[in-house]
């Protein structure tokens, strides 16, 4: 278990930068409802740089011809094929067995660290 400094919180909250190089890996950092998540910048589908995708909401499961918007700012949508991942679990919305590779995030004051296994 090794902890690596990644960024200051403010860097991310101002939305300037989400993708960081850590030990040669590209990691995307996301704050969702006050919790921090780090995901590797690789889509498990075909290797796209997923962290360049939009953070958004989606239409929730609904009745036919009804539209319920939800999970706002909780979806990471791949910039290639548009696969939707839940930023809090890393799971693909259609197939929960397809997951982003994630790392624990530790906050200390204004500093963010990721923990590599």
């Amino acid at each position: 278990m090794k902890r690596h400094w990644v960024a200051k919180k403010t860097e991310i909250q101002e939305n300037k930068q989400r993708i960081f190089q850590v030990q040669g890996l590209e990691i995307g950092l996301y704050c969702v409802e006050g919790r921090w998540f780090a995901w590797r910048n690789v889509c498990p589908h075909q290797g796209a740089p997923i962290c360049k995708g939009r953070v958004c909401g989606t239409r929730l499961p609904s009745l036919v011809y009804q539209y319920e918007y939800g999970m706002e700012e909780r979806i990471l949508r791949c910039p290639w094929h548009g696969w939707e991942f839940d930023l809090t679990t890393g799971e693909h919305l259609v197939d929960s067995g397809t997951k982003l590779r994630g790392y624990e995030v530790v906050c200390e004051g204004e500093d963010l660290f990721v923990v590599f296994p």
Binding site: H45, T58, R59, L60, P61, S62, L63, V64, Y65, Q66, Y67, E68, C78, H81, G82, W83, E84, H92, L93, V94, D95
Partner: peptide, 15 residues
């Protein structure tokens, strides 16, 4: 396509 575009048919619950 459903894996990518499911939000356009949110009423579908399965593949």
């Amino acid at each position: 396509n459903y894996k990518a575009l499911r939000e356009s048919t949110p009423w579908l619950k399965r593949l």
